[in-house]
Design a protein around this nucleic acid. Structure first.
Lengths: 220, 220
DNA sequence: AAATAACGTGACTGTGCGGTCATTCTTTGT
DNA sequence: ACAAAGAATGACCGCACAGTCACGTTATTT
């Protein structure tokens, strides 16, 4: 009969939401997530094996599959906080932009995007770094979730700027080119900053980039 | 005695420089290079096995090792044309910059950089794409040569702009930030363009980016 | 406290990988 | 034409991997 042929691994959550089972489960989940983050950063997602992950998390191999069905699913979990923050920040910015009517409110919309992104970049630099490290991976395999997030970021950035242009808030010839250029600049600066190649404080980097975008190099 | 303990695989070149051996050898080398380029793009460098490469190149596995000692060495060979062009272009630009004295000659130096890079990007888009795809990989493993090239590009870009600032040719507060922002913008635009997400012609993309950098968004 | 069910373990299996090598084929030098 | 050397082959070895599973442990329910 099999009411649910598919209730295989991993099983449902334990009984009480605040009980010992629930806490233990969350702890293991987080241990595996942290192990993944460390190993992925050091060796690249593709090079890390399930054995490596289990060992680094201090548990047995078979147990890994009680929490994640695949490495790809773990990658999604590792990325989750950043992915959520990114989506929220774009939603916010889009909502504000839809009610914008002048230069000031346009600026405020873009500012809300930045203000939504900066906190997570400060609290989770390693996750951001992992994203940047593998963000242009082929769309198949364990790195796929990272690539998907990258595609979403580019898409929504372009969307946002096209909306501004369509509603007469911004007057630039090709919004797609400008939006992608800014995304590329932001990502490269974040990458160099997190990697320690740029010792300037993030606030200064952001300020320099904003004035560069608004006024160009000539103005200085 | 062993005059040469280390003349193991891969062996020296065959007798005549223009003979059949030489031609065959060059052909196989190129077949393996093309096979690598295709497979690396489709599946990512780390996911491709030596068996895959040999099969795609239409040869036997053992033969691979007559041409490359490792996957990493093949990656280096795949990248070679772009790596060479990049180095040459930076050398050129640096030489011009050292003799620059005003705005016009500064512009000419940067222009020579662009003019050195554009041809190889047009003739070898796949190699550029592979570089962009894996350019932020960890420094160990088969992707290492790609990462090395990326580091070199960033380093020399910063160097170039710092030189211009130090010699009073450019007046910007932090040359490192500006240089990296431009590198990021260029790479992102190249990535999107090669990936078909931007249908604008390269010349228009370049023009828009240049005016964006020089004058900012406000000017339009 | 007994029964139940999720958690946790590590051995096990099959598969596929990197790298080697004896052998055969092709080119070259004489 | 013949010998010498490089090119090419694919079977083979050892190993490491993904995924499974029977069994022991710990928390939860009754």
């Amino acid at each position: 009969m099999s009411t649910h042929d598919s209730d295989r691994l991993p099983p449902e959550r334990p009984g009480q939401p605040g009980g010992k089972r629930d806490r233990n489960r969350k702890r293991r989940h987080e241990q595996l997530r942290q192990a993944g983050l460390r190993l992925f950063l050091d060796h690249g997602v593709d090079q890390v094996t399930i054995d490596d992950l289990a060992r680094e998390a201090g548990t047995a191999k078979g147990n890994f599959y009680r929490y994640f069905t695949s490495k790809s699913e773990l990658v999604t979990a590792v990325l989750a906080p950043v992915a959520d923050a990114v989506r929220d920040a774009f939603d916010q910015a889009q909502a504000r932009l839809e009610e914008a009517h002048d230069d000031a409110s346009l600026f405020a919309a873009y500012q809300s995007l930045a203000l939504g992104l900066i906190p997570v970049a400060m609290t989770e630099p390693d996750v951001v770094r992992l994203y940047l490290q593998e963000s242009r991976a082929p769309a198949s395999g364990a790195r796929a979730p990272i690539r998907a997030l990258a595609d979403e970021i580019r898409e929504r950035s372009v969307e946002l700027t096209e909306f501004a242009v369509d509603h007469g808030l911004l007057r630039i010839p090709d919004p797609r080119i400008s939006a992608l250029a800014v995304v590329g600049a932001v990502e490269q600066l974040a990458w160099s900053s997190i990697g320690g190649e740029l010792d300037a404080p993030p606030a200064q980097i952001a300020g320099t980039l904003i004035s560069l975008v608004l006024e160009g190099i000539r103005s200085r």
